[in-house]
């Protein structure tokens, strides 16, 4: 087999796995958008905040240490214990649920029936608040996150592909793991939304608020629920990205990549978020590999956005989104 083709295959595989992470972030957007019509700009920062909180809890960091020390003149930073990863993940999940409750109680609840642009602005505010709040709570330095996920070259794939093609594919264990987790998450969410009482209520709220109220669904409860689920998805994304490239501010920028993913997949479709993520992931890696050298490289920075732009022009509802019907 020609080398070029083998490289391309390896690039495609790596792209698929990067795409899974994009999809994971996009999923958080879709959930909230479907249920409440809110485009949650803060989704990326939520992933950052979740990762920060997870690291902080695992390392036994004292939250708001800087603030406490400044006010009381103390010098405390650390509880001096370490929390096992599983327990820390669970505690972080509780924090994300509390965050969801606060967002609903103090922000969104007061903006019911406002224009989408107002809700969007509110989430921009939320993003900046959360960014500062995360810094204040856990400090602004770059942190290493290690919850014990497998990392590094997958030997099995390397050897098997070497045996087949005489060329070993370099696939990261973490990417494989992220793919499996994302798949489980998507299947779980689909089952939840199709078959559980809460899932049915969630779909009902996404479809028609008035009707949902009339069958006894509390909108507030459902919105806290979707923000909690979005927080959970953010946590999973935060763990994957944080493990890969450290917990730092740039982590919140991955949310920007979710935007083209959503334009491709449609803002209201869970399968759309997945497929959109995969297409962007593979597309940008392959494009960089094939066309990049001809145009001087660095195409990964803009490829996704140009692709999204083309979609906006030719298929604004995305691949899977519900058709946008103009009412006259």
């Amino acid at each position: 087999m020609p080398d070029q083709l083998l490289y391309a295959m390896e690039v495609t595989l790596n792209g698929l796995m990067a795409g899974v992470l994009y999809a994971l972030v996009a999923l958080g957007f879709v959930l909230i958008f479907k249920a409440s019509g809110i485009f949650n700009y803060a989704q990326g920062v939520m992933a950052l905040f979740a990762a920060l909180t997870l690291v902080g809890i695992m390392d036994g960091q004292v939250p708001f240490a800087v603030l406490i020390n400044a006010v009381f003149g103390t010098e405390i930073h650390n509880f001096g214990w370490e929390v096992p990863a599983i327990l820390a993940i669970f505690l972080t999940l509780l924090v994300m649920c509390a965050l969801a409750w606060c967002v609903q109680k103090f922000v969104m609840r007061h903006l019911v029936n406002q224009e989408p642009i107002i809700l969007f602005m509110a989430t921009i505010g939320l993003a900046y608040f959360l960014e500062g709040f995360g810094d204040l709570m856990w400090g602004a330095d770059i942190k290493k996150l290690d919850v014990g996920l497998p990392q590094g070259l997958n030997d099995t794939i390397d050897q098997v592909t070497y045996g087949w093609f005489g060329y070993g594919f370099f696939i990261d264990n973490l990417d494989i793991f992220a793919t499996v987790i994302a798949a489980i998450l998507v299947i779980g969410l689909t089952i939840f939304s199709q078959y559980s009482k809460q899932g049915r209520a969630l779909r009902a709220v996404a479809d028609d608020h008035q009707a949902a109220l009339s069958v006894g669904i509390s909108l507030n409860y459902i919105w806290v629920l979707v923000w909690s689920i979005a927080g959970f998805v953010a946590l999973v994304a935060g763990i994957m990205w944080g493990t890969k490239s450290g917990v730092q501010f740039s982590l919140s920028l991955i949310a920007l990549k979710a935007l083209p993913v959503l334009m491709l997949g449609g803002f209201t479709s869970i399968p759309g978020a997945i497929v959109g993520g995969l297409i962007i992931g593979v597309g940008e890696k392959l494009f960089e590999f094939l066309i990049g050298p001809m145009v001087g490289g660095a195409t990964e920075n803009w490829f996704a956005y140009v692709l999204a732009l083309l979609f906006l022009v030719f298929r604004p509802q995305g691949l899977f989104g519900e058709k946008i019907i103009e009412r006259v």
Binding site: R203, A204, D207, S214
Partner: peptide, 23 residues
């Protein structure tokens, strides 16, 4: 019921009626 009909347009007839059982 509502004067201007408030149904879950994206769901099937069965699913719509099922939501009536949520309580």
């Amino acid at each position: 019921t509502f004067q201007n009909i408030a149904l879950f347009e994206g769901m099937s007839v069965l699913d719509n009626i099922m939501t009536g059982r949520l309580t």
